[in-house]
């Protein structure tokens, strides 16, 4: 077996540990303290924000326009509508803003 294969296998195990690890730790407790529950409820917004924020700061006008349209559409439309609107604005704006 090549080194590459072992890297992939170890990477896969490490990744699976992150995907199951939080549950294994939390499930050891009988009752979840309300403050922990509040923390868990904050997970989606907290993690997903970190995937957006640095990219927003490093972006230009075309990207900002796309994000603003995405935000506006997301107030009314579904996930698909929001995504397609944002992507369309981005591609259009990049034809002009580069």
């Amino acid at each position: 077996m090549s080194t590459t294969f072992w890297i992939i296998l170890a990477g896969a195990i490490a990744t699976y540990l992150t995907r199951v690890g939080g549950h294994l730790v939390i499930s050891r407790f009988e009752n979840i303290h309300p403050r922990v529950e509040a923390g868990l409820n904050a997970v989606p917004a907290a993690v997903l924000t970190t995937l957006v924020a640095p990219a927003v700061l490093g972006a230009g006008p075309a990207e900002w326009a796309a994000l603003i349209v995405t935000a506006v559409v997301s107030l009314r439309g579904g996930l698909m509508a929001m995504f397609l609107a944002g992507a369309a604005v981005l591609i259009l704006a990049r034809q002009f803003a580069g």
Binding site: E63, A71, S74, F83
Partner: peptide
């Protein structure tokens, strides 16, 4: 980033 922003707003 566009897709993730939509998820955050959701």
């Amino acid at each position: 980033p566009i897709y993730f922003l939509g998820l955050v707003l959701g």
